[in-house]
Design a protein around this nucleic acid. Structure first.
Lengths: 123, 123
DNA sequence: TTATCTGCAAACATTTTGCAGCGAG
DNA sequence: CTCGCTGCAAAATGTTTGCAGATAA
């Protein structure tokens, strides 16, 4: 268990949202941890192969990773103008998504859901 | 309406599966149609913006395109392993999303929702 | 010591952009 | 003629690979 491995794993523990390799790397840098980008990729691949993290693809093709959990997580409502963000949980929607996926024979489902708009301050 | 535009559109009409820009380009070449790769990308972007084709991301980050089967807004349930896709509409969820956003003072809301999993054939 | 991990540099694959020219209407 | 479409070349982006040196056990 190296320092770098520790750092990546620990950061994933503290992160609920699906996050890109690039951003994880940037955050480690910002936190003063010196971990190479290549190493972040290597770690993410190992963790993904070991089934410890989930990965999905974002709209623009980036790979996003998140520690596997069966627990709840939350989503964001983001203002396209000023970036203001409201967190919300979507318990009902998640159950609905799992049910819909299951109805088509899919397992290990993950979902991405983001809502954007213009907040009242920017309107 | 140029020859190239015609060729891309026509090929999409004849293709049921989600297909990458690269492969569409290769098939046009093979069919003797000389259409530049850049042009294929340009066409795909125009068609996607016009809502005439759907795009999803494959496991490895490629963008895949297909002529919309329905003219209406819908979402995708995608197999992370083989790319099999099921379209579904999410009328209830959309109403819920608008209500939630409105409750926080947001207007002009848009949403992104994609569900992924492993389909029964790949399980 | 030794197998594994790290990370620089370079390779890769896909997609986008700059721009000069072509061609449909 | 004019404006949008085309497509070459080059850049941008995200990710992977080769490999030599560092490090945990």
């Amino acid at each position: 268990m190296t320092r770098q491995k520790q750092a990546v794993s620990s950061l994933l523990d503290r992160t609920e949202e699906f996050t890109s390799a690039q951003e994880l790397h940037a955050r480690l840098r910002q936190a003063g941890e010196h971990v190479g980008l290549t190493t972040v990729y290597a770690q993410l691949r190992m963790l993904a192969e070991a089934g410890e993290i989930d990965s999905v693809r974002s709209e623009n093709g980036e790979a996003l990773y998140r520690r596997c959990t069966t627990g709840t997580h939350h989503h964001h409502l983001v203002c396209r103008s000023c970036g203001k963000t409201v967190e919300f949980d979507a318990h009902d929607i998640e159950a609905w998504a799992r049910r819909l996926a299951g109805g088509h024979g899919f397992i290990e489902t993950a979902h991405v859901m983001e809502i954007s708009g213009i907040c009242e301050d920017c309107a």
